[in-house]
Design a protein around this nucleic acid. Sequence first.
DNA 1: CTAGGAAACTGACCGTGGTCATTTTTAGGA
DNA 2: TCCTAAAAATGACCACGGTCAGTTTCCTAG
Lengths: 192, 192
Amino acid sequence: MQKAVQKRTLRTRARLLAASEEVIHREGYEALRVEEVVKAAGVAKGTFFAHFRDKDALMEILIGERLSSIFDQVEANLPPKTVPELIRVLKPIHSFMTSERYVFDLLIRYSGAAAVAEIGPIAHCFERYFRVVENWLTYADVRKDVSADLLAEGVQAFAIQAMSLKFCALHEAQSFEDKLEIYLEAWLTPAT
Amino acid sequence: MQKAVQKRTLRTRARLLAASEEVIHREGYEALRVEEVVKAAGVAKGTFFAHFRDKDALMEILIGERLSSIFDQVEANLPPKTVPELIRVLKPIHSFMTSERYVFDLLIRYSGAAAVAEIGPIAHCFERYFRVVENWLTYADVRKDVSADLLAEGVQAFAIQAMSLKFCALHEAQSFEDKLEIYLEAWLTPAT
DNA sequence: CTAGGAAACTGACCGTGGTCATTTTTAGGA
DNA sequence: TCCTAAAAATGACCACGGTCAGTTTCCTAG
C-alpha cells in the first residue's frame, strides 16, 4: 500500500499556506518573500522547498485557488446572451487577472501548463474559462458559422490581448472593457 | 551644450553588446549570465548596470534588434493576399518568437512597453507587426465590415494565442500553424 | 516496548542579479 | 602642460531563490 502521509506533513503545509496567504493579504502577491513565509510559519527554508517545487509553484496554488473561487461565483450567473453581458459577467475574473502585473505575468506564463510536465491549477482555470464561455456561446446570440469552441478560444485570445493593453504605456487612453467590447463585437457578431 | 558622451562609453557599451551576442550565439538567450558577459568584456559588474538598467534591458535590446532585422526581411516580400500566404510570410517572425521559451516570455512581458516609463524596442516590434499586417490586410481578400487595424490587432492576438499553445503540454498534438490557420480563417474570411 | 528504517525537517551554503561608496579616467579651460 | 569637476569604472557587498548533507521525528514490525 501507499506509505501514508504523516499528519505532520499536512500541518506544516497548512501552516505554510496560511502564512503565505497572510503575507499576500497584507502586502500583495508581488511582495511575497520565501524567507518571510517560513519565518511566519516557524519552519526552516528547506522545508518550504520540500513542500513546493519553487516559489512559483506556491503562487500557482494560491492564485489558482483564488481564481477558481471567482469562477464559482461567475458560473452562478445566468448565461449572458450578448457581448456587453458577457463582458459584465466575466468582469470579476478579468479584474483579478489584472489586479497586479505580477499576477498577470504569472498567469500567462502558466496558462498553458508549465513547460515541464503536468498541467497545474492555473492551466485548469484557463481551460475552465474556455469551457464556460463555450457553453454560454452555444446558446447566445452570436455567429454560428464557426463552432462555439473556436469562438470561445477567440474570446480568450482577445481578453488576453485587451488585458495586456491595460499594462501598456501606449494604449492607456482606451479602457480595457471598451477595447474588449470592440474586439468581441467584431468576433462574435453574426455574419449577416 | 550637451556634455558629449565619452568615446570610452561607446567602446565599453559595444564591448558589452559584442560579448553578450557571443555568449548568446554559443549558448542561447536563456543561458546568458551577467558575470560571464562582464568577464568576456573585461569590465566590472557595476559597469554593466551603468550601461543597462538591468539584465532584461540588455535582452530587450538584443532580442529587439534581432526581431527587427527579421521584420526587414519579411517586409521585403510581396504582400500576402490569403490566410495561408499571410502565415507563410510571417513564419520567420513566429519562429524566432517561439525559438526559446525564455524569449517568448520576455517578448510577452515587454510587448506593451515595460510597466515603467517609455516604450522599448520590443514594444516597437509589436507595433510594427501590427502596422505591417494592417497594411497587408487593407489590400487582401478579407472581410471589410471591420477596419483593417482591428483585423490586424486580432491577427496579433490569435498569433500570440497559437504561440502560447506551442508551449502548452495540453495542445501539443496540433501544430502551431494549423491552429493559427483555423483562427485566422474564422477571423478574416469575408462575411458572405 | 523497542529498534531501525523512512519521512520530514534543518540551516549553512551557493548562484546570480543588482547596489553604491570609492577610485580612476577623461576632457577642456587657464 | 597642469588642474579640476564631471563622467565612468570598480568590486565588495546585499537580497533572495534554491540546494543538500546531516539531524530529528515518526511509524510500524517484531
